[in-house]
Design a protein around this nucleic acid. Structure first.
Lengths: 359, 359
DNA sequence: TTGAAAGCGCTACCAG
DNA sequence: CTGGTAGCGCTTTCAA
């Protein structure tokens, strides 16, 4: 299996009767080389299908043309669609991506992270990537461990780092905050406009920035409309299907009264809807739902799932561009801001007439 | 951003008052070093948080402790769950993963591959990964372009390569065939047992191995039961949600008669179901469905989606283990075989009584 | 047990 | 325009 010896520049030089330097020149095409020599060398290169070792180059240039992405779980559609964009743009700029799943907080697979995130940080340093993108994980917690901060600090002292997550002071990374609660506000108001007054909030882990931001937006929206915050209508859990299922069951077991709910994301919405259905409650006729974070399948669910599109693909593009700019030392990081888009679909029902029992 | 100079072994040596060699020895812990020297060096290493350059090491050892994964599209749950397992096991064995999405055949995002797969192969060679896993892509086509074969051949001459896909002769990779049609046969027979006689087949691209294998299994199952193959009941397309939607619409527009269908995977099942629903046909009461390739959400769909679990995670584990063994020259590749598991859920309905109109 | 030195494959600088 | 040479950070002989 592949034990053929690796061709090197030296052998190309020998066979072409030129010096190593000359081969290097035609390889890089920056300095001028006599046409016929150039041609000869190129032929030999062709013949052996030679391609210079990125390792050796990296040793000199200190550039590996490789970027690291560290995220919790690529099976999560939010991350995978972001990743896809990241990789596309990286490729365009000539970079390859080293991907690490930390499985941080990964309740979905029953498997847990065996390594600290710091382990992955070190890995990136060792492999000498040109920059790192950190997408969620512990950085998204409200309270971050000191050891994590230290590790992140160390990483950012060695390499350009872009983080999607909460800003941590005194660490020299570029932080991109992906969420401002605006989407939730919009969704809430839409449900309100349809006539809903008892609106629950379902899913999301406590102590996670994104949960807290969305939850706050929900509470603020209530208060802005002069409604009370009813803790009975809030059922947190986590971000996956089973979490939505469970959270909704909890909500129901409290005998809480509600005619609609916001779900932290599509997974949770789906799971929660399933729990409702198992109790013979139908969406949207009995209960309406809008998901706060759209995945890819909403358009084809039954009922079609209303949601907020946070454009993870655009965010991905933003992240990779920011990182590459930062590597090239081009320009200042610009604050990312975009408008989450409310996508109205069947699951939020229409006003009143769907369900005459609603007041 | 991160412009701190990189500590090298030389500086550690200097500051510890020992030679580079000695530092190298304590780093690798293989040769013996005087205890007090060792301690001193270790302290300095600690102090600077020094970690040796994987690049420089790679240049000598010819090992990068990095593996490549080339797959079409990580947003596809089948690939992402496989990838997750691959990465977990790679990590355990000390490897990092370079991930490339070729977007081969990627109808889902409206974006197409801008690079040939051969481009990614070359990338892997340049980056000197220790081995490559190729998961689907052009290798899954019935007819593979000559240029692709050449590229794959070249790759496999340089590195250990494990391919999940159809065996191509005279190429020195390890090929793992993931599909034998057994799952489809089982699913078909189950539908038959429930009383269905007009069973359609929906989704999957023609010219793709997996489609053909499943389609053949379907046809064989029909014939084994003495039923005719009715081409009107076969509606191929692709593997995504919109493809299922479209394929089902095509099927219906033909006025084809059927009481159940097999979908090439969960995406297609979902899309097709949505198309049925849009015509006021309900699953499973009007039409039953089993998906031939389970994703992660089936348990929470409405109705819960019956499917065949092909255990992509186990396959992933298999692939990575095979590759690592091959790198270490340990043992022969073993033929992978496992039993796809029929997961019976609501969408296939129960026998007869659900729908009395069925004969 | 230790240090000096060669060299991995390549780039970059220098002199010619 | 070209070849020789130093050296990137590390491992690995080889002597001492």
């Amino acid at each position: 299996m592949g034990e053929k010896e690796h061709i090197t520049i030296t052998q190309i030089a020998k066979e072409s009767n030129v010096s190593i330097s000359t081969v290097s020149r035609v390889l890089n095409g920056n300095a001028s080389v006599a046409p016929e020599k150039k041609k000869r060398v190129e032929e030999i290169i062709q013949k052996y299908n030679f391609s210079p070792s990125a390792i050796a180059r990296g040793l000199i240039s200190k550039k590996t043309k490789t970027l690291g992405v560290i995220l919790p779980d690529i099976t999560n559609p939010y991350f995978s669609s972001m990743f896809l964009e990241i990789e596309r743009f990286a490729l365009e700029a000539g970079y390859t991506i080293l991907l690490c799943n930390t499985l941080f907080g990964g309740s979905s697979h029953g498997i847990r992270n065996t390594k600290e995130e710091a382990y992955y940080f070190q890995m990136m340093i060792d492999k000498q990537v040109d920059g790192v993108m950190i997408i969620g994980g512990q950085v998204d917690l409200i309270t971050v461990e000191e050891s994590y901060k230290q590790a992140l600090k160390r990483l950012s002292e060695q390499l350009p780092v872009v983080v999607i997550g909460r800003k941590i002071d005194e660490i020299d990374c570029i932080f991109i905050q992906q969420e401002n609660g605006l989407g939730v506000t919009t969704a809430f108001n839409y449900l309100y406009m349809l006539g809903h007054r008892e609106i629950a909030f379902v899913g999301g882990q406590t102590n996670v920035t994104i949960t807290e931001i969305r939850l706050n937006a929900y509470k603020n929206a209530l208060q802005a409309l002069g409604l009370e915050v009813d803790e009975q209508l809030i059922s947190l859990s986590d971000y996956y299907l089973e979490d939505g299922y469970q959270a909704m069951n909890n909500l129901m077991s409290r005998k809480a009264k509600f005619t609609a709910f916001l779900a932290i994301n599509d997974n949770v919405a789906l799971g929660a809807q399933r729990a409702l259905y198992d109790q013979n409650l139908k969406v949207p006729d009995d209960i309406a739902v809008i998901s706060c974070d759209q995945f890819l399948t909403g358009e084809y669910q039954i009922p079609r799932l209303a949601s907020i599109n946070h454009h993870p693909d655009i965010l991905g593009r933003w992240v990779i561009n920011t990182l590459i700019n930062s590597i090239h030392g081009t320009g200042e990081p610009i604050q990312f801001s975009f408008t989450p888009e409310l996508v109205i679909r069947e699951s939020c029902g229409s006003a009143i007439n769907h369900n005459p029992m609603r007041k």
